Amino acid sequence: MTAHSGSKKAVYAALIGNLLIVVTKFIAAWLTGSSAMLSEGIHSLVDSGNEVLLLYGIRRASRPADYTHPLGHGREIYFWSFVVAVLIFALGAGVSLYEGVNHILRPEPIRNVTISYVVLGASALFEAASWLVALRIFRREKGRLGYFAAIRQSKDPTTFTVLFEDSAALLGLLIAALGITAAYVLNAPFFDGLASIGVGLVLAGTAVLLARESKGLLIGERALPDVEASITAAAAGDPDVQRVNGLVSVHTGPDQVVVGLSIEFQDTLTVTAVEACVERIEAQLRHSRPEVTTIFIKPQSAETWQARQEMLMRTAPADPDTK
Rank of each mutant, 00 (worst) to 15 (best):
I88T: 11
L31V: 08
A195G: 06
R139E: 06
K215P: 01
F164K: 09
R140P: 01
G246L: 07
G6I: 03
F26C: 10
K9S: 13
E275M: 12
E127N: 05
E40G: 06
D47Y: 00
L71I: 04
A302Y: 05
A195H: 03
Y147L: 14
L312V: 08
Y184K: 02
P225N: 00
L91P: 05
A14C: 10
S44A: 12
L71E: 08
W131G: 09
W131D: 06
E165W: 08
I231E: 10
Q256G: 02
A182I: 14
S39P: 07
T24C: 10
R152H: 07
P225R: 02
H251P: 06
R111G: 08
S167Q: 11
L31D: 09
T2R: 02
G41L: 00
V52H: 00
V162H: 09
R75A: 14
R140Y: 06
A177I: 07
S167L: 08
Q266H: 02
I175P: 01
N245W: 01
A182Q: 13
R60I: 05
L97C: 13
F191L: 07
V258N: 01
V119A: 13
Y147G: 03
I110Q: 05
S34I: 09
S230P: 09
G33R: 01
M311E: 12
V241M: 04
S214Q: 15
A14Y: 03
G200D: 14
L55S: 11
P70V: 07
K298E: 05
D238L: 02
G94M: 09
E228R: 10
L97W: 12
Y12H: 05
L170T: 14
G200S: 13
T294P: 01
L201S: 08
